[in-house]
């Protein structure tokens, strides 16, 4: 009961100004945590999807679910962790490349993670890596040994496997 668990919520909301603020202030006002957050329009322009990663014990997760549902602008809340789902995140990593030898190594390492080079300058290289949390953590770990100059993550996006509804 008291075990903390990580949960991913997919929150479909009306695509209006102020809606994200309502969702976020619900978390800050009640002392719930947000580990990662991603917001974007869906294929239906009137609907935005918020993908939100949080953690807490079962009672807190239930409260988060109920409070999200209670917001007037929230159309649907799904706790993706309750079923089988896929999740992805993109990270952009800028790594220092002082010499050709190091650059070759970095490019080889990027291969392993199926990373793509999206910019290359004499002293640095920007890589894009996509994956789930474990893969990204592993990639970041390795690249940090070469010296990470800058790093940006999208936050997770996720969906249920199989047909919905």
């Amino acid at each position: 009961m008291d075990k903390e668990e990580r949960h991913i919520f997919s929150v479909m909301v009306e695509n209006r100004f102020g809606v994200l603020a309502r969702v976020v202030s619900l978390f800050s006002g009640r002392g719930f945590n947000i580990d990662s957050l991603n917001v974007a329009e869906t294929h239906d322009k009137s609907v935005s999807q918020i993908t939100l990663v949080t953690h807490g014990n079962a009672q807190i997760i239930e409260q988060i679910y109920q409070h999200l549902n209670r917001l007037i602008d929230v159309i649907e809340v799904t706790d993706l962790s309750a079923g089988t789902h896929v999740e992805r995140e993109i990270v952009l990593i800028k790594v220092a490349t002082d010499d050709a030898q190091k650059r070759t190594e970095i490019l080889q390492t990027a291969e392993v993670f199926r990373g793509r080079v999206i910019d290359m300058k004499p002293a640095s290289i920007v890589l894009e890596v996509t994956g789930d949390e474990g893969k990204l953590e592993a990639a970041i770990n390795i690249f940090s040994t070469y010296g990470i100059l800058e790093l940006a993550r999208t936050g997770k996006i996720a969906m249920m496997r199989g047909a919905t509804n």
């Binding site: 009672q59 239930e62 409260q63 109920q66 409070h67 549902n69 209670r70």
Partner: peptide, 8 residues
């Protein structure tokens, strides 16, 4: 009437 009230 309020699901978030139950079990709080």
């Amino acid at each position: 009437i309020d699901a978030s009230c139950i079990g709080k």
